[in-house]
Amino acid sequence: MKVAIVIGASSGIGQSTAIQLAKRGTDVILTYSGNEAGARDTVAAVEKEGGTAVALRLDIGRSETFPEFREQVGAALRDTWQRDTFDYLVNNAGFGGMAMFTDTTEELFDKFMRVLLKGPYFLTQTLLPLLVDGGAVVNVSSNSALPTGLVDAGFSAYATMKGGLNVLTRYLAKEFAPRGIRVNAVSPGPTRTRLSDSSGVAAFEAYPEVIPALAAKTALGRIGEPDDIAMVIATLLGEDGRWITAQNIEVSGGYDL
């Protein structure tokens, strides 16, 4: 039985990824920050697919808690699966929001950095001793950080961190290759999730009027759904992705094509 750790799986892309992995026979350790009810929903959905899931709380912006989290992961692996390693890691947790360059405070910049770049960097480092040889990592980035992506005013800090995550993906793929560990990224376009800004406001719930305009900019005529991204993540992690590493796959339905 394969076991994946999915960071930020109480809703949206992370939740869908946990479910898609369960459909493919992979059990899940999932994390949540404030949405414990959503985490319970994910556990129930994984179990409905015949899988096993354990939910652990984690604040990806607090790297000082990572050693304790690794101990919790180790205990969950031993108690639930009678093993001391896991197979896949999905770095998905994050938050959205915008601020014009001239209005971006150091506090907001630092929060983006802690959650979107420093967190995945040092969490992966912390968990790496538990990741099996031949395993796989997927980092969830954003098409806003791609050279071909739409440059929209107000996302300079957010996209800068996602750009750093893209670079990190390639370097980890190089350094982990001797152990047969593949590292890739996916870059979603506009996707219907509960992704919130720094104040906790979920963008598409607060501003549903933007959805038609985003769909009009998308070649396939709609915004993305979490499953659209999750299916690609599950493919990259599994046997079908065995010869793919150091890649960043845009999953946007042709946004701004």
Rank of each mutant, 00 (worst) to 15 (best):
L127R: 09
G163P: 13
V151C: 06
G224T: 08
V251A: 02
A216N: 11
S63Q: 13
V115E: 05
S187F: 01
T169N: 07
V251E: 01
F112N: 14
E209I: 06
D256Q: 09
W81Y: 15
Q72D: 11
G189E: 09
G149F: 02
T191E: 02
T193F: 01
V167F: 08
S144C: 10
G50T: 05
A76L: 04
P190N: 04
T191R: 04
G8P: 07
I223G: 01
T193N: 05
D27H: 14
E225C: 00
G241H: 10
A246V: 04
V251Y: 00
L237S: 08
P178A: 13
G135C: 05
G51P: 08
A136M: 06
V232I: 15
A37T: 12
W81V: 01
E106H: 07
A173I: 07
V137R: 03
S11Q: 13
K174F: 10
E239P: 06
E250S: 12
S63A: 14
S10C: 04
P129D: 01
S16I: 03
Y121S: 12
G224C: 07
N143V: 07
L30D: 05
T52Q: 14
A246F: 02
G224N: 07
V138P: 00
L168E: 07
R62E: 15
G34L: 00
K174R: 13
M113T: 14
G96L: 04
V232A: 14
L195R: 03
K162G: 09
I13L: 04
E49K: 13
A234G: 07
E209N: 12
L127D: 08
F204I: 05
E36R: 13
R83A: 10
E64H: 10
F86R: 03
L236T: 05
R40D: 11
A76Q: 04
G154V: 02
G25R: 03
L30E: 10
N139R: 04
I223F: 00
E49N: 11
A45R: 13
E64D: 15
R170Q: 15
M98I: 04
E49H: 12
D110F: 00
R222S: 09
A206W: 03
D197P: 06
A39Y: 10
V90F: 06
T191S: 04
D240I: 12
G164F: 01
E71M: 13
G12V: 02
A173Y: 08
E175L: 05
L21S: 09
G180V: 10
G12Y: 02
T102K: 13
R57L: 01
A75G: 02
A219H: 11
S199A: 14
P188T: 07
Q82N: 14
A215F: 00
A99H: 11
K118T: 15
A203R: 13
G241C: 05
L127F: 09
G200K: 10
D152Y: 12
L30P: 02
T17N: 03
G164T: 02
E225S: 03
V137L: 11
P129R: 06
V137P: 00
Y88E: 07
E71R: 15
I13A: 06
L168M: 15
T169M: 09
A75N: 12
S144P: 00
A99S: 15
P212G: 08
G8E: 03
G253W: 07
T148N: 02
D84C: 06
A22M: 10
V3H: 07
V28F: 02
L131E: 11
V28M: 03
